[in-house]
Amino acid sequence: MPRIIIVDRTLQEDTWETLPRDAALPDSGNVIAPLETWRHVRESARARSGAVGVWLAPDDDPAGIAPDVERLPVIAVQFPQFADGRGYSTARLLRARHGFRGQLRAFGEVLRDQLFYLERVGFNAFALKEGRNVADALAAFADFSEAYQASALAPEPPYRRRTTAAGA
């Protein structure tokens, strides 16, 4: 049974297979390859049937795939432990600096109570940790209706909106 994930705040069947480290690229099917693998197949992948995305570990530098963001349909960021916050910066850089507009997915130890922040740094897809209630987790996006910072959802921090409102 395909796995259910959250994409753009709705439940969907996952149409991608996330390859483990060191796995060879299968001949067909949509796959998300680890960065190492992607580096090797970067050119040959164009000829393959089925799309190829890439996933980054917490210490992978997103700048390394900056030239590829236009062609990558999906970039996934791994959270080996939910308390490892490096992936948040990775996402922010991919969106705000490198201009990635495709699916940005968090996977690994992804839990309901992190979803709100994850979405705000730019993730729009979430493969929750195995065994978690995905439908319940959807409520987390509504935890807060405001935020103080600029984010993927609101490019202007409220201090710019506040002042505009006050000045209007």
Binding site: G85, Y88, F144, A147
Partner: peptide, 17 residues
């Protein structure tokens, strides 16, 4: 106060080392 607001629920920096 500016820093209080900026740092409150900062999504990128909630799971620092």
């Amino acid at each position: 106060e500016l820093i209080r607001q900026w740092s409150t629920f900062h999504p990128e920096f909630a799971y620092l080392p």
